[in-house]
């Protein structure tokens, strides 16, 4: 185990976070605050409570998930795409580091950043809605697992993408719609039955539901199903990364 390499990659990536503080932390926080003001405050005041929770509070877990998912994928994908783009990837490829060490460094840093971001947004939310976290340990577990899984997915996107266009494609056109339609701002009970069934095909629904359960003890699906689903994603993502590295796909000629 080349622990020095993992540390080097990890701190390199974290340094990038601090260097781009505005883009990585400040702007997602501002965006989320706007959501709270508009949806939670203005519109939410006109909406009935859902499962006995005010609308403003109901959307807190969804909004955190929205930000964690999009930031994990975009940050992790950029982290590995940029060295490919600039050519500095040669050094990682020629270094005595295993695939898993590379993943630990890059994805570990991206996930760390997402967890930090999630917690910051949670704290910000406290200004807009009454906060209660029924199961803090589960909340953290869901947050960490989601951040790690979607950072892995981002990493895969970064490996796959060979243009900036493709890099943006998945986060904007797949992840964001899935998150919006995954019960971030509503309970699927509010949908017509057909759409409820369609929603169950949306993987993100399970993440949001499980996360919301850790806050309020209620969710669209049972927490066990949520947990299982996120573990399934994690395994799929890890298997994909392993395959990419084994074949050298888009990394080694």
């Amino acid at each position: 185990m080349n622990i020095h390499a993992v540390r080097a990659i990890y701190s390199f990536e974290m340094a990038r976070t601090w260097r781009t503080l505005f883009q990585s932390i400040v702007s997602p926080v501002v965006t989320t605050s706007l959501y709270f003001i508009v949806f939670g405050g203005a519109i939410g005041s006109q909406i009935n409570e859902i499962d006995g929770i005010t609308y403003g509070a109901y959307i807190v877990p969804g909004l955190i998930m929205l930000m964690v998912l999009t930031q994990s994928t975009s940050n992790a994908s950029f982290g590995i795409y940029f060295p490919k783009f600039s050519g500095t990837i040669y050094e990682v490829l020629s270094a005595p580091v295993s695939h898993y060490e590379v993943v630990m460094g890059y994805v570990g840093a991206a996930a760390t950043k997402s967890v930090m971001l999630g917690l910051i947004i949670l704290a910000t939310a406290g200004f807009f809605a009454p906060l209660e976290v029924a199961h803090p340990v589960w909340m953290l577990l869901f947050l960490v697992l989601t951040a790690f899984t979607f950072s892995l997915i981002g990493f895969i996107i970064g490996l796959w993408a060979d243009t900036f266009e493709k890099l943006q494609f998945v986060p904007l056109l797949i992840i964001t719609p899935l998150v919006f339609l995954g019960g971030t701002f509503y309970s699927i009970d509010m949908l017509p039955p057909t759409w409820q069934t369609v929603s169950l095909l949306n993987p993100v629904l399970y993440l949001v539901s499980g996360f919301r359960w850790s806050f309020y003890g209620v969710g669209d699906v049972s927490v066990a199903v949520s947990l299982m689903m996120i573990l399934v994603f994690l395994v799929i993502a890890m298997a994909t990364v392993a395959w990419i590295f084994r074949t050298g796909y888009r990394l080694r000629a």
Partner: peptide, 21 residues
């Protein structure tokens, strides 16, 4: 191919770590 935004010191130290030293 260089990391444009890094400093010389950091990028060289990074390389040493990456190679397991």
């Amino acid at each position: 191919s260089t990391d444009s935004f890094e400093t010389v010191w950091r990028t060289v130290s990074f390389s040493r770590g990456l190679f397991g030293k």
